[in-house]
Design a protein around this nucleic acid. Structure first.
Lengths: 212, 212
DNA sequence: GTCTATAACATGATAGAC
DNA sequence: GTCTATCATGTTATAGAC
């Protein structure tokens, strides 16, 4: 049976997504996309009016796809602290397994325009972020929920964003790739902090403190 | 007075850096760089053998320039907690003022190759990161200093990395751009955590809970 | 020798004819 | 769907200006 036009478009987009994530918009040629979809470059223009349009449709597809899983972990039953803990563990696992999502978002933040930012926030982050701030309000009423939500995402996202260069940092070990280890560290930090000193007006007297 | 060869090259690089930060390697044409330096595209090849070489030299210049300021805040006198607090505040201020550095690093992480990763870590992060881990060891001996150092950088870097889309998130206010506010939030979180619950064995155990 | 301008070539994105 | 033309861009070769 011949694939419908819609199926054909979807297939082309699914083929194109990993290419864009790996190399970025400019370094992906229409010929590469066409080759992966087993048609010729010109034929792509039968389905999509331009490379830009193909790209934007690909983004929409992959973002809406990944969004669901992200929000799931937040809308479960249980104690708020457990929900946060679960979220961090799942998020780290997903970031570790799927570099595509993270890379595409980073590329969008660097190269997108205002219209695309609105689209991404609306389609990808809005619902997830609302759930996050709600959880933060429950869990830590003394904190600004907006800043705290971003901080929590930051901790997980950044650890895996810098994966490619992390191994060259002094002291790096392969185990630092392990989602369990990273997530446990993040959860401990979020709940307890480094638990050392109050955060204002501390220890101003001694000059040249001896190392601990 | 005629500029020397070195001055001429430096000028071209300084002109090129903001272009690369804004649009990325591929979207910057040799003709654009040449126009900004008030020469023609062909003439660029008298100074640099290729676009790649021009780009790499530009990166080296901007990275070594920014590195110094980053490490300064860490090598001051004072109580470790104060040093960390100072670092976070300075880092946030710098990230807020200078988007170029941050954008170039994000682009490098996305598009660089192993050789370039090594170069960047060596020239930009190694010294800074060593100081960070040393500080972390002093300040929070119970934590893995490597993971903690990354987490601290993550909190500051990510808040400003997502600046372009932050304003579209529900609950966003202009004050969340203010380095003082962001830095204070980060410092409070690092030192105290959300101060709510212990980080293991909380609530009831549920199906699919990650191991503690 | 040192810098620059000009012209020309190869490749890739894209539009339009078939 | 395919094929061809056009345009932008990295790059090279060559020659002029100081």
């Amino acid at each position: 049976m011949r694939p419908t036009q819609l199926e054909c478009k979807k297939r082309i987009l699914s083929d194109a997504v990993p290419l864009f994530a790996k190399s970025g918009y400019d370094r992906v040629t229409m010929r590469q996309i066409a080759a992966k979809a087993r048609i010729t470059a010109g034929s792509l223009y039968h389905h999509f009016p331009s490379k830009q349009d193909l790209y934007l449709e690909a983004m929409k597809q992959v973002f809406t796809d990944r969004t669901r899983r992200l929000t799931e972990a937040l809308s479960e039953d249980g104690h708020p602290a457990d929900r946060l803990r679960n979220l961090v563990f799942r998020f780290c696992k997903q970031l570790r397994e799927d570099r595509i999502f993270s890379r595409l978002i980073d590329r969008e933040i660097l190269d997108g325009n205002e219209e695309r930012f609105r689209m991404i926030v609306d389609k990808v982050f809005k619902e997830f972020f609302s759930e996050m701030t709600r959880l933060c309000k429950e869990l830590a009423p003394m904190f600004d929920p907006y800043l705290l939500a971003i901080s929590i995402v930051a901790l997980a996202a950044y650890h895996y964003q810098i994966t490619p260069i992390r191994k060259y940092l002094p002291g790096g070990r392969p185990s630092y790739d392990d989602p369990e280890i990273v997530a446990q560290h993040i959860v401990t930090l979020i709940f307890n902090g480094i638990g050392h000193k109050p955060h204002v007006g501390i220890g101003k007297k001694r000059k040249g403190d001896p190392p601990a």
